[in-house]
Nucleic acid binder design. Structure first.
Lengths: 196, 196
DNA sequence: TGTAAAAACTAATATGTGTTAGTTTTGTTG
DNA sequence: CAACAAAACTAACACATATTAGTTTTTACA
C-alpha cells in the first residue's frame, strides 16, 4: 500500500490540497470526485478523511490561501513610501507573478469560489470586495495628485484585475514568450496603452 | 398543468436554453440539475426531453451561439476599409456590449466550455484559438503601419480580451456607473493607458 | 366536435456521489 | 520486539443524478 509521501515542509494535508487544486482546475470543483482525487494522491477515497474534514474544506483552504496572499501584499505596499504609479505597478507585477507561479490555486480561487459554503462564501466575497475597494482608493489618490488621468477609478481597477486574471489563458504559450516580456509588456499596456 | 409559454419568435427550446444559461451562470454546469432547470421552466424534469436532446446539448447551444456571434462580427470588421485603431476599438466595444447585453450566455461560454463533450470541446477551442489568431494578426498589422507600439501582440490581445471578460464582475455596480462611461473609459484605458 | 400530434405526467433505472463504520496494516517508539 | 497511534483498507449507506419507458393530458385543426 503506497503511503502518501509528503516532501520537505509539507504535511500530507498539504499534498492532498495541492493535488485537489490541480484536479479542481482541470475539471471544476463539482465535477471532481473524491475518488478521482484519491487516485491522484495514490490512495483509496475514504483514506483521505484521515487527513481532511471534507471536500468543501479543501476548496476553502485553496481560496483563502490565495486571498490572504493578495491581501498581505497589499498591506505591505500601502505602508511603503513613494510614488503611486510605482505602487500600482508593483501590485500588477505581483498579480502576474502569482498567476504564473501559483497557477492552479489562483485559478481555482478565481473560478470555483462560487461553490464555497457559508459562511466561507460570504467571507470570501467580503474580503475580495475590500481588496478592490483599497485599490480603488489607491487609484483615486493617484488621480488627486495628478499621476493618473481622471478615468473612472472603478473601471480602471476592474480593467487591471481582469487583464492579469486573463493570464490563465497564457499557459499554452509559455515557450514562445518569456515571462519577463509578458510581465513588462502587460504592465506597459495597462499603464500607458498601446497607441504609438 | 402549466405549459411552457414561448414569447414571440422563440421556440420552447429557446426558452429552455435561456433558462439554462441563467441557471448555469448561477450554479455552474455540473452543479445545475435538470430538476432545477425544470423547476425554473415550470415543468417536470423528464418533460424537458420533449424539446431537447440532453443537458450537454444545452451547453453546446449556448457556447456556440456566443462563439459564432464574435466570429461573425470579426468577419464584418475585417472586410471594412479603414484605420486599424478604429477596427480594434469597434471590436472592443462589441465585446463590452456583448458582455452587457448577453451576460448569462457569454458568462457560461467563458466559464463552462470545459464541460463540453467531444467533438464540441475541440471545435470550440479551435474556433476560439482562431479568433485570437486573427486579432493578433490585426495587432501585427497595426504595429507594421506604426499605429501601435511594438509590444508583443499576443500579450496585447490577451490583455484586451481578458479585460473585457472581466465585466462579469461589473454587474453589481450598474447603478453607480453608466454603461457609456464604462465602455468609453475601458476603451480609453486599453488603447491609451491611465498615466497622465 | 372529433381526432391526431405535441407535450405534459409518473415510475423507474442505472450510475455516481460524499461520507461513515469498522477493520487491518503500517510506522514509530520504549 | 511489544505495543500504541497513524493511516491505510473494504463495505456500505443514503441520496442525487441524467435519462428512458410508458401513459395521460392538452392543444390545434378539419
Amino acid at each position: 500500500m503506497a503511503k502518501i509521501k509528503p516532501g520537505k515542509n509539507a504535511t500530507k494535508k498539504d499534498v492532498i490540497t495541492q493535488k485537489a487544486a490541480s484536479l479542481f482546475k482541470k475539471k471544476g470543483f463539482s465535477s471532481s470526485s473524491m475518488r478521482e482525487l484519491a487516485e491522484a494522491v495514490g490512495v483509496e477515497a475514504p483514506s483521505l478523511y484521515n487527513h481532511i474534514g471534507s471536500k468543501s474544506e479543501l476548496l476553502q483552504a485553496i481560496c483563502f490561501k490565495v486571498a490572504n496572499a493578495f491581501t498581505s501584499y497589499l498591506d505591505e505596499t500601502e505602508n511603503t513610501a513613494g510614488n503611486i504609479v510605482v505602487k500600482l505597478e508593483n501590485i500588477i507585477r505581483f498579480h502576474i507573478q502569482m498567476m504564473l507561479n501559483n497557477f492552479d490555486e489562483v485559478y481555482v480561487a478565481n473560478h470555483e469560489w462560487k461553490h464555497l459554503r457559508e459562511p466561507y462564501l460570504s467571507n470570501f466575497l467580503i474580503q475580495r470586495r475590500g481588496y478592490e475597494k483599497r485599490l480603488i482608493v489607491l487609484m483615486e489618490d493617484g488621480i488627486r495628485v495628478k499621476e493618473f488621468k481622471d478615468n473612472n477609478p472603478y473601471v480602471s481597477v476592474l480593467t487591471i484585475l481582469s487583464a492579469v486574471r486573463g493570464l490563465e489563458f497564457w499557459q499554452q504559450h509559455k515557450k514562445n514568450i518569456s515571462s519577463q516580456v509578458l510581465e513588462d509588456d502587460m504592465v506597459d499596456h495597462l499603464l500607458k496603452g498601446i497607441i504609438k
